[in-house]
């Protein structure tokens, strides 16, 4: 296992290095540069100013040279400066990362806490009224667009009932645990409702497949109780494909909560990545996307470790 983990960590470092260049090159290939954006905001800017600023910001150099400069500085611990936020990249990134981890951590816990049991219940009584009801709920969650659901939540709970804030992270001057908690209710509900349906469906399918296996029939024949069959034998095996899905979703959720973050004015990683790419903020976009890559890699590594825990027949060398 130790050797396996060491190999995976080494692979991850190589993937990150390759990704850093790929991301830098792709952003560099996009039309325009930060100075073009400045010109569009200030028609009085002269060609001399534009040339001077291109040199100052280093965007007059080829992408490879800029990347090499960035890499050397990054290896020395300097991840660069965000042009969009006029601050060191990590100063901008870490608060957003913290916000995202809280938002997605809660979402993942809630989504799994609801989705997995619902999927198991549906699988135990396939094509029953309970199964149909759970499926209806799951498909509604999957089908409803996140932005529409977000606005609906705001209208019901913030505008009509007035019981929850419409957006943000805390009341200005009113910070505190409960104050921050109420700001999380709607975005977490929005993301949970959007993701719980998928978890329910994956769990249901995996559980139905497992319940058809010979070893389940054998367990039943040996007189094992329903609870023991389901929880002790079926659930553990059914979790293997579900863990794969969760691991893949981890990276997506990390950077893909853009719509929810925008609707609820929640300053997280999704919005930060979007704004940095659209605003041509090379350093910030690069480091933020590398964080997203890293989270995906960690998620997959955790999934591999979990496989071995779930199924002792799986070993790593």
């Amino acid at each position: 296992m130790t050797r396996f983990l060491a190999t995976r960590v080494a692979q991850s470092v190589i993937v990150l290095a390759l990704m850093s260049f790929a991301i830098y090159a792709l952003i560099g290939l996009m039309p325009g540069d930060p100075i073009d954006l400045m010109i569009s905001a200030d028609p009085k800017m002269t060609p001399e100013d534009a040339a001077r600023l291109r040199e100052l910001y280093g965007v007059d150099k080829p992408v490879v040279e800029r990347y090499a400069n960035w890499l050397m500085a990054a290896l020395g611990g300097d991840l660069g400066y965000s042009r969009l936020y006029a601050a060191p990249v990590l100063d901008v990134l870490l608060p957003a990362l913290g916000n995202t981890l809280i938002l997605l951590g809660l979402t993942l816990v809630l989504s799994l806490a609801i989705g997995l049991p619902a999927g198991v219940v549906a699988a135990l009584r396939p094509y029953s009224r309970t199964d149909y009801a759970i499926n209806l709920f799951a498909f509604a969650g999957i089908s409803v667009p996140a932005f529409w659901l977000g606005l609906l939540l705001i209208i019901v709970f913030a505008v009509i009932l007035g019981v929850l804030p419409a957006g943000g992270t805390e009341t200005v001057g009113g910070a505190g645990f409960w104050d921050q908690a109420k700001y999380l209710v709607l975005p977490v509900a929005n993301l949970t409702l959007a993701s719980v349906g998928g978890h329910t469906r994956y769990m249901r399918a995996a559980m139905m497949e497992t319940l058809r296996q010979d070893y389940i029939r054998t367990a039943r024949a040996k007189g094992a109780g329903r609870a023991r069959v389901v929880l002790g034998h079926a659930l553990r095996n059914a979790m293997i494909p579900v863990v794969t899905i969760i691991a893949l979703q981890f990276g997506y959720l990390f950077s893909g909560a853009l719509i929810t973050e925008t609707i609820f004015a929640y300053p997280g990683m999704g919005k930060l990545i979007f704004d940095s790419i659209m605003g041509n903020d090379f350093n910030l976009a690069l480091v933020a996307l590398l964080f997203a890559t890293l989270v995906t890699l960690i998620g997959n590594l955790l999934a591999d470790v979990t496989y071995a825990w779930l199924d002792p027949r799986i070993t790593y060398r």
């Binding site: 932005f147 977000g150 606005l151 705001i154 209208i155 913030a158 505008v159 007035g162 804030p165 419409a166 957006g167 925008t262 609707i263 609820f264 004015a265």
Partner: peptide, 9 residues
């Protein structure tokens, strides 16, 4: 759209 909703709330 969220700006409007925030105003209304």
């Amino acid at each position: 759209a969220a700006l409007e909703a925030n105003l209304m709330s």
